[in-house]
Write a protein that binds this DNA or RNA. Structure first.
Lengths: 145, 145
DNA sequence: ACAATAAAAGACAATTTTGTCCTATTTAAT
DNA sequence: ATTAAATAGGACAAAATTGTCTTTTATTGT
């Protein structure tokens, strides 16, 4: 709706990886896809984007899988995941798709959107994977259904 | 970015139609597409959706075209256009794509998104075509570039 | 009645997104 | 060294979105 499917899967996957990493567990794509209810192969592709962007760490071979260092969890923000997969158009681009839309030459929605996009940008840049993972850990939030 | 291309064109087209209707002018698809810088045939399709939803009025034949009654302009809200083309998922659905995401079983972003989506919904349901068209009329906003 | 004009409708094409499958590469364990 | 387990990468397929083109329908003006 707001993000692409790939981005939705990417965020859910990252949160699940973080959750498991908090408990010192490394997870496979198969397990991730199962736990976040997403297509395995497609999720694998999406995870590749995240590893290339150093958002999650992948280890090949037996007992390999995905993980996120505990000390990185706090510095990895949602905005980094979204940007890696969808780009920053959601919170940077014009709501009506104009190339040149700014305070000087605003589209009719420019001012109306300003606050919303600003809040969205702030939320995404301030929310860390750690925060999301701990919410899950405590059993307050869910990744499927 | 936020809306589909069809929806972007739809909004821009509706605003342009409203602007011209304010001056008592009826406009053709060709003129609309030219003025909002969009593909003609595709814009025509999108306009069909708006006419079916009684958001704009279309008149066939010579000196026909699209228009919006002045008295309707104020009651036509952005949310109606968006809903007619993209559905209401942007401001009603879950940010992470979960089917069942609510206060009881929230996704990790549910609370973080609550305000943003609520503001977006309010903005869309409160903003009328009249308001947008008059901004254009005064020369404060733009529909292309 | 006829010709011209404009939207409606439908078939088709291109592109992007979403998704699958097979092979290659890396690594751990025996 | 060999085998097995895991991600990486590439080719392909399906579906959705975006876009074009042609024909039909309605309406106006002559």
């Amino acid at each position: 709706m707001m993000f692409s499917k790939a981005c939705e899967y990417g965020i859910r996957a990252a949160v699940y990886i973080a959750l498991q990493s908090l408990e010192g567990k490394r997870v496979s794509v198969a397990e991730i896809a199962d736990e976040i209810d997403s297509p395995v192969a497609f999720t694998a592709k999406t995870l590749q984007q995240l590893t290339r962007n150093n958002i999650v760490k992948s280890i090949k071979g037996p007992s390999g899988g995905f993980e996120i260092e505990k000390e990185d969890m706090d510095s990895v923000k949602l905005s980094m995941i979204v940007k890696a997969i969808d780009g920053d158009g959601i919170y940077m681009g014009c709501g009506l798709g104009l190339k040149e839309c700014n305070a000087n030459q605003p589209c009719p929605l420019h001012d109306k959107f300003a606050d919303i996009r600003s809040n969205l940008r702030k939320m995404l840049t301030n929310t860390s994977l750690y925060e999301l993972a701990t919410g899950l850990e405590v059993g307050l939030t869910y990744l499927k259904r």
